[in-house]
Amino acid sequence: MNNDNMNIDKINSFQKQQNKEEMKKQIITFVLMIAFTVVAFAVVASGLEAIYAVPLILILAVVQVGFQFYYFMHMKDEGHEVPSSLIFGGIWVAVLTILTMTTIIWW
């Protein structure tokens, strides 16, 4: 059991390089996500009118979540057709639910 941790040099160097490239993309994703967050908070702190601020921060949130799903959760990779359909199915029902609760039932 003790030699489990020693397998590291047996990983092929091409794969290691690939993992490294992948990690670089993840760090760029993280920087972008932090940037979106800072912009969203700055928009609210600046006291921009609600009619402009609310759509703007909602778009920033959607884009940030897209990065989270496609990069951090690897939905851009191969073999993610089932996860994509599950998440988009969930989002579809979620949109209907929120639409119902916020508008339709009050008419």
């Binding site: 599950l86 998440i87 969930g90 989002i91 029902v93 979620a94 949109v95 639910t97 929120i98 609760m101």
Partner: peptide, 15 residues
């Protein structure tokens, strides 16, 4: 599958 269900669950709370 679980996360798809969680999306709907949280949507109810958000709504």
């Amino acid at each position: 599958f679980f996360l798809g269900g969680e999306t709907v669950l949280f949507a109810c709370f958000f709504g």
